[in-house]
Write a protein that binds this DNA or RNA. Structure first.
Lengths: 117, 117
DNA sequence: CATTCTTACCTCGCATAACGAGGTAGTGAT
DNA sequence: ATCACTACCTCGTTATGCGAGGTAAGAATG
């Protein structure tokens, strides 16, 4: 009746940019590796499909938050490495604030208490 | 470039059920009042439009989480009062767990630490 | 009665975005 | 050539928040 996967897909909406930007704070990474780190960091809770990851990366690049560069792979095809731009760092900080505000708002409503910030 | 309203609309996706169910833990309420309380509790951060609230209520009713009843209003039209069913209470608890897991997952990824649960 | 105002609820169409499935290249083994 | 593996891309489906506009009840005005 209450499909866990379906719910999480909806919850994820809007948080992917934050997750991606935050992961890239570690430095330059290619898409596949970003997905793997997000998965690892979340303790396996978030398993991004490629159908959501790559479009998200493109959006962030279009928005000017990421800069990308192709590099030759050793035992495979080329990889596309992404790194944060200056605007990307700013976007990351803003996304963190958005998330923080949002999350505390949800907690306040969900817990039925008004004492949050 | 990074539209705050647009982002929050996406973040909200999937959390509305939790917000609504949690608000109804206070007891029987009609739609308009639910919206007002969510707004008040979130410190004005969440301003639900009717276009999202009513469909969400209908979904929850269809899912069996809410039970609704029409009542005559005093100086206006009838109101539809909603209350949690037994399944609704269960759904609320589950939604709280979902949210908790999700939020801590996001925090772990966003903060770049692996020491969370 | 018709008009207008307010409250409360409903619905249609649009836009966003996560996802599954299927497709494209490069390398190496058979 | 065929298969397997890696890494990336894209299309169509699906879910859902939201703005705009519509419905219904009662009261005040003419």
């Amino acid at each position: 009746m209450f499909d866990r996967q379906r719910i999480q897909a909806q919850l994820l909406k809007g948080t992917l940019p934050l997750l991606v930007l935050a992961t890239l704070r570690d430095g330059e990474l290619h898409g596949y590796e970003i997905a793997r780190r997000i998965r690892a960091r979340s303790g396996g809770a978030f398993t991004l499909s490629e159908g959501s990851l790559y479009p998200a990366l493109h959006r962030l690049e279009t928005d000017g938050a990421l800069e990308a560069a192709w590099r030759a792979g050793e035992g495979g095809p080329r990889r596309r490495y992404y790194c944060l731009t200056r605007a990307g760092h700013a976007a990351l900080e803003q996304a963190e604030r958005e998330w923080s505000t949002f999350a505390s708002g949800v907690s306040q409503v969900a817990l039925g208490s008004d004492h949050g910030g």
